Simulated scan of single mutants.
Amino acid sequence: MSNSVNLSLFNNNTLSFSDNKLIFEDDVIHDFEDRYQNISSLGVEQQVQIFNKLIKIVYETNLPISVKAQSMIIFGYLFKILSTNNKPLSIISIGDRILNNLYAEVINMFDKHNIFLKICRYNDHESEESFDATSILMHNFRNMGFLSENEYSLILINCDYDRENTEEIIKQCNRLVSRNGKILLFGSNVNFDLPNVIEDSNMVFYQLHSEGFVLEIDFLNKSENCHKESYNTEILMQIKTTNAAFFDKLQLVLSSRPASKSDEWFTLIDDCISLISQIESCITKNYMCFENRDLKFHTNEVKNALLDFKYEAYLNGADYNLFQSIVFDCYNSWTEAVF
């Protein structure tokens, strides 16, 4: 098979991959040559090679032409979203089984820290699992409240796996999808009320066959995002306020040395340990507010450095200056990570 692919679809529509562009009719789904958009660690030439291999794999299967076209479009969106990010992303696939392992491989190629969740029914679960994905087994897809809101950059929904609850699933995914994230629905036919789904959203509809479609949804009114940003600001202000008190006491701790075991210095360092513990507790409870998921670990490092420093001072040990510098370095690294 050549690097140019053309699929003739419903009503003489065509889906093609030519000149490194994935095009449906006149709509460019993804232009691999748009190098200014690629900020990932995976080069454009490498992406094109991988995409061609994926198309070849799908093209040579016995899958219906509509499913082949759906797969090409989904792969196109995966490359588009993953290439325009340089930090780990989270992606969900709901209900699909056919190509999830290939999706997982692509997602992992861009960043091994990317998260790919496969949500499926218990009776659809495959015993051979991809190491690049995490499976979540459910009896149905109506309640996904356990997943974090505004977290997922792309959500894939196979509408054929739960036809009766498609609208409810889409509403829940509106809560889950991140700002500027996308929801891609696909299936054999549209079995839901479009006006109810696309309210306050942009939509791109690809009619691939008499029984085959892909629907891209970008929700415009993300009130949850606004609430999240407000909540994030509130949490950050709490940490800043506590840190201000912490820093005042830490300066006194680092600028002096206790003369005895009853020195006020020990009260000051105990106050510092108490304050950083408060911050650690706040971050632990609200870790989803922070892009740096290792922040709790960094905070715990500061607390442990203070505890070690206190113990060294209590023993009047010879390594007092070393432990003092460790506290100083840990705190500076922590402030860079938080603020």
Rank of each mutant, 00 (worst) to 15 (best):
N174K: 15
E211I: 02
S256N: 13
L220Q: 11
D193F: 09
K228P: 04
L250E: 01
E216D: 12
E167T: 13
I217L: 15
N232Y: 01
V204K: 12
F205I: 03
D248Q: 05
A244V: 06
R179D: 11
C173T: 14
K240R: 15
I198A: 13
G181P: 09
K222G: 12
F213L: 07
T242S: 10
N225H: 09
S210L: 00
D200G: 10
E216G: 11
K222N: 14
E229M: 05
G181V: 01
C173P: 13
A259W: 02
F219R: 08
N202H: 09
I235V: 10
S178H: 02
E224S: 14
K171I: 09
L236E: 06
N225I: 00
V204H: 04
I217G: 11
E234A: 11
N196C: 10
M237I: 05
E199Y: 09
T166K: 00
F213R: 02
L194P: 12
P195I: 03
S210G: 02
Y231W: 01
R175W: 03
I170W: 02
E168P: 10
D218A: 12
T241P: 09
V190F: 06
L194D: 09
K182T: 13
D193N: 15
K249I: 05
C226P: 00
L176Q: 06
S178E: 06
V177P: 11
R257A: 14
K171T: 12
P195Q: 02
P195K: 02
S210N: 04
I235K: 04
N243K: 00
I183G: 11
T242R: 01
T242M: 05
R257C: 15
L208V: 07
K228C: 07
E168T: 14
I217C: 12
N196D: 12
L254W: 02
F246L: 13
S201Y: 00
L185H: 10
R175I: 03
L236Y: 01
I235H: 03
F246M: 04
K171A: 13
G212I: 02
A259V: 05
S255N: 14
D193M: 04
E224T: 12
L176C: 14
A244W: 00
L184I: 15
I169N: 12
Y206Q: 10
T233K: 09
N196E: 10
C173I: 06
L184D: 15
E229R: 05
K171F: 10
E199M: 09
T166E: 07
T166C: 14
Q207V: 02
L185P: 15
S188A: 11
F186R: 08
N174F: 08
F247C: 03
E224F: 07
K249T: 06
N243M: 09
Q251V: 10
T233I: 02
G181T: 04
Q207S: 13
K222M: 10
R175N: 14
H209T: 07
V177S: 07
S201M: 01
P195G: 13
S201N: 06
T241M: 11
V177Q: 04
